Computed example of a mutant assay.
Amino acid sequence: MAVPTVTDEWVIESVSSPGSPALRLNKSVPVEAIGNDEVLLEIKAVSLNYRDLAIASGGYPLPVKFPLIPTSDGSGVVLAVGASVTSLSVGDAVCVLPAPLHVSGHLTTATHRTLGDGDLSGLLRRHVVLPASWVARFPDYLTFVEASTLGAAGVTAWNILFGSGPRGIRAGDWVLTQGTGATAMFAAGFAVLSGATVVGTTSSDAKAQWLTELGVSKVLNYREDPTWGETARKLSPNGEGVDLVVDVGGSGTLAQSLKAIRYDGTVAVTGFLTGGEGGPGPSLIEVLPRAANVRGILGGSRAQYEEMVGMMKQWKFHPTVDKRVFGFEDAKEAYEYLRAQKHVGKVVIEIRR
């Protein structure tokens, strides 16, 4: 494979307005030299997260450094390897781990670093040089587009379902997921395949079909049923409540999430889609009436990625990707499409030659 000396990359110089990300395409940027422990990748696909929108518009709750190359999730092929690299070879198909320093166990200040926020450069470019330990192989039945979704949404969902203690979700449990975004779709699919009963929420009958096809038992339209959390609890055995809620909304959904769970159930908070809608959300004291566990989720580790991939191979699980896949030159449009919430599953930018 030819080793390029220049590449193209998208850059965000500063905070932009929510509806128009200040993305600029830089062409013929020099490619870094490959270190002994590094690999050169040709990026094939990049998937977007709501986090990317928040970073671009100044709404991300964690520190950001501008200018930056955005996005944290991608897949590609190895074009060259450093002299000390033995784990990968030229031609290998890999995905990039968004939190590459988190190998296993609990997060620490040192390991909680993610791509695409200016601290570590992101992947919205044609080529990138990275430490070999930052990438991992993916199941060979997946396309590059599908594989680009695994690092953040897939591993986050896996962490939600199986990352809290030795038990994890298992057959007979009840799980409530919110919406048809990527993390919710991964979580719903994994939970169904694990034998759990899944209740999902969505805003439209059209999107409900995607959940039903995953095996979700009951879909609630949260626009028609504002007390969907209470409804989900009543659906569960003896009306006791669900075992786990996958909360992607944050302050605007947490109150209903707490209504949905059983005593000593868990609400896994992994997003902030609703921002401050409906006020500041419930106070911390409201976890007491249900003896609730509220767990914040910030992605997952490499070890969890490997666990997830192992089960995906057994299940032959395919991620849900929106039917509209964007080209590299259409990155701005992809951002706007995600912001408009027109998607189901992952919004992906495919990088063709």
Rank of each mutant, 00 (worst) to 15 (best):
N36W: 14
M1L: 04
D205W: 11
T5S: 12
V6C: 13
A334Q: 06
V344W: 07
G172V: 04
V198P: 11
K218M: 10
S203R: 11
E9Q: 08
W174Y: 07
P61G: 00
D322M: 06
T5V: 13
D119Y: 06
K44C: 02
K323M: 13
A187L: 03
S16F: 00
I285M: 14
P67T: 05
L25R: 00
F326L: 11
E146H: 03
R352G: 09
A188S: 09
G172F: 03
I55F: 01
V46E: 04
A340R: 01
V85L: 00
G165P: 04
Y335R: 12
R126I: 03
T253M: 15
V94I: 12
P226A: 10
V3K: 05
F66A: 09
T111Y: 02
E146R: 10
A93M: 14
V11A: 07
Y263E: 15
E9S: 10
I349T: 10
P67S: 01
R233M: 10
G281M: 08
V155N: 02
I34Q: 10
I12C: 02
T212R: 11
P70E: 06
R24I: 12
G118P: 05
T111R: 00
D119H: 14
A184K: 10
S20F: 06
V309Q: 01
G299N: 11
T86A: 11
L53H: 09
I43S: 01
F326V: 14
L211K: 02
G265R: 02
A191E: 07
W210K: 09
R352M: 08
V31T: 09
L220F: 05
